[in-house]
Design a protein around this nucleic acid. Structure first.
Lengths: 226, 226
DNA sequence: TAAAAGATGTCAATGAGTTGTAAAATCAGG
DNA sequence: CCTGATTTTACAACTCATTGACATCTTTTA
């Protein structure tokens, strides 16, 4: 059963949402202010957050930003009052997935919910972000950090890492890598792979000479352990 | 309650439309000629305009054109007499959303009305304005400013920016952009994209050579960070 | 165990491929 | 036919992939 967290201080609205979602077969949790909303969203295995913009203690925007900054990617739909047009932009900017302007019909909200959840489940299938050690990878915007500092990786290095991650634990041969990561534009030598591994180690390993994540498997290839 | 403006000089028709719409729960205003129709459509917060093509003082086509030229996007349904086939094309060309040929059943008209309003409300959901840095974009009337000064953006540049904004943070490939922004009328080269990016940077970046908003992702594409 | 053979790590130079940008050619709308 | 927008072309600047050379390490074998 899918779990939805409703963060809404207006009692009538909160009850309407709770009943509506329960009718639709969701497990509903209600929070009445921003801080408890943030806590519940982080703690529980929530599938979806409905977040009012105007809230006591902490605004919906801040809750949203805070959640996203911790890497929490739970789908969020914001509720804004009419006339808070500017909030649409701010809401999306701070990481919400969609917004609905009050007053709205429950049907309308449900349509958005379905859409957002559909998108989210699609996202889950693809590798968007990955973390190992103090390295954070984002394959969507091609950004990476190590220990919080930005890490400059080329597109090939991203592809290489992606392949490794999708085959983590498994020893992969150089030919396998050339097939999948290089896809044969020209026919680079297997040594080219070594080169890239070396560069990658320089960037992601704490001690590149004694690698911890990209391990050499002699006479076979390499193995990623993250 | 939704407000409809009926611009129709034929008394019998005007009354029939007024009664029909009122029965459906609309607030109805009737105008008997083009000029007053135009005035009412601009002044009042009208949700929908029913516009006869043949009108005294100012034709329905001209009213429509005039309205659209002022950036007014109110849904318009044109009424044309049979045999004015040519007007269908003209009507849609001048910015109407749909047309109905006389004689028609009221049911038929209402079906069109519902369809047009549904489409319009969808449009409302879409991005209307966006701001980043000192740049302000208005996608509704295709106006933009940078640091308060008007910014001259072509329609393609608007589309491009819109796509970027809807995918902000994400690295998008040139092919993706060609698919979505160009929609393959002819098959422009990927270099065409670069060209437009360069021009866009000239316009929106503070230092186009060292862009802050449209970032190049080498061997991947571009990424918007606003 | 020591030497040989083979595999891998690393560096620097080269070069293929990508991107920025100006200018010319083309297209579309009035 | 003119004007402005768009697309194409051309070339410079740049990034990064590739390669070969050589050092170092691992495995094999005498």
């Amino acid at each position: 059963m899918r779990k939805v967290l409703v963060v809404e201080d207006d009692q009538a609205m909160a009850i309407a949402l709770r009943d509506g979602f329960e009718y639709e077969g969701y497990a509903v949790t209600v929070a009445r202010d921003g801080t408890s909303g943030l806590r519940l969203a982080s703690e529980k295995g929530v599938d979806l957050v409905i977040l009012d913009v105007m809230l006591p203690k902490m605004s919906g925007l801040d809750v949203c930003k805070q959640l996203r900054s911790t890497g929490n990617g739970t789908p969020i739909i914001m509720l804004t009052a009419r006339g808070q047009e500017i909030d649409k932009v701010l809401g999306l900017k701070c990481g919400a997935d969609d917004y609905v302007t009050k007053p709205f019909s429950f049907l309308e909200l449900m349509a958005r919910v379905e859409a957002v959840l559909r998108r989210a489940s699609k996202k889950d299938e693809q590798l968007e972000t990955y973390q190992f050690g103090d390295v954070l990878l984002n394959f969507k915007n091609f950004e990476a950090t190590k220990a919080g500092k930005p890490l400059d990786l080329s597109s090939r290095e991203f592809k290489l890492l992606k392949y490794f991650i999708e085959h983590r634990g498994e020893a992969v041969s150089r030919d396998q890598l050339l097939d999948s990561v290089w896809s044969y534009h020209g026919f680079p030598l297997t040594r080219t792979v070594d080169m890239h591994i070396a560069k990658l180690r320089q960037k992601i390993e704490d001690s590149p000479a004694d690698p911890r994540y990209i391990i050499t498997v002699h006479r076979v290839g390499y193995k990623f352990t993250g």
